[in-house]
Design a protein around this nucleic acid. Sequence first.
DNA 1: TCATGTATTTAGAATAAGTCTAAGTTGAGA
DNA 2: TCTCAACTTAGACTTATTCTAAATACATGA
Lengths: 147, 147
Amino acid sequence: MTDHNTTDKTTADKIVSAEQLLLSRGVKPTPQRVVIADYLLQTDSHPTADEVLSAVSGALPVALSRATVYNTLNTLKDAGVIKEVLTEPGRVRYDANVSHHHHFVDVKTGQILDIPADKVEAIGQLLGDQYKVHGFQVLFYGELEQN
Amino acid sequence: MTDHNTTDKTTADKIVSAEQLLLSRGVKPTPQRVVIADYLLQTDSHPTADEVLSAVSGALPVALSRATVYNTLNTLKDAGVIKEVLTEPGRVRYDANVSHHHHFVDVKTGQILDIPADKVEAIGQLLGDQYKVHGFQVLFYGELEQN
DNA sequence: TCATGTATTTAGAATAAGTCTAAGTTGAGA
DNA sequence: TCTCAACTTAGACTTATTCTAAATACATGA
Ligand SMILES: [Mn+2]
Ligand SMILES: [Mn+2]
Ligand SMILES: [Zn+2]
Ligand SMILES: [Zn+2]
């Protein structure tokens, strides 16, 4: 890029950072992968594969195939760039927030919010020593108070 | 039933109790439903629909169809007799333990163990008051210590 | 008893998420 | 420029689940 125009760094910056992120994880930053990673990095909506496909297909000059979306999501997951989130039967959601965190599902709207790990920190230690806990995932269901 | 033979009350008792359970929840206890509910009540393995079908189809004099297994599982779920458990993408597991509890997935064996709710009791209160928590589900991943 | 209506079950078709295949495209390096 | 491996593509395939339409069972009332 090395762009002289500094008025809108946002897009270029995001592309650079998605690209850098992929490079840093050993994933070749193809246009398809960059555009998908970039989309996941800038949303907090925990989209499904289909939602990624619709959101992103217009951003490429060529057709984006479903196979590439799934390939890319699996590649990014294996590289630790994104995580899968299971909140309901039958569909996997994707999350570029790879820090240890949890989720709150608003049962009215379906919205899925991130809950920082430190809010529920203690859970990993609660089981007896017959369990060696590698990790855990908390899914809260409820409503957001409208304050 | 009102059986004079007391040497093996187990089977008859279980059938009676599955039957009573269904009746108490307003579900007509057809042979298919009783046999499926009974199987779920006596296992702690959190089976999938296919596992229920294989486990149970021999127990009926007639063929048991996939559609009936799914219909029954959904009926039992809607009646509060069983719960769905999501531990992995793409398949739903079923659990006749409808008490509030959590799960431990042994990453070596795939075994899914119940964790009583009182072990992680406090979690429901940890979020701020902008969240009205109706319920939550913790999924632990790890290994069972072989003591 | 018989008729009839409703609930249930059945086999197989349909759907939908995800994976696979086989054929093209790309692009880094010889 | 040539080559080859990596990547992408369209569409076929698989698998879990739901739907459909026809058969069965069963309760109720004439
Ligand atoms: Mn996956
Ligand atoms: Mn379901
Ligand atoms: Zn998240
Ligand atoms: Zn359980």
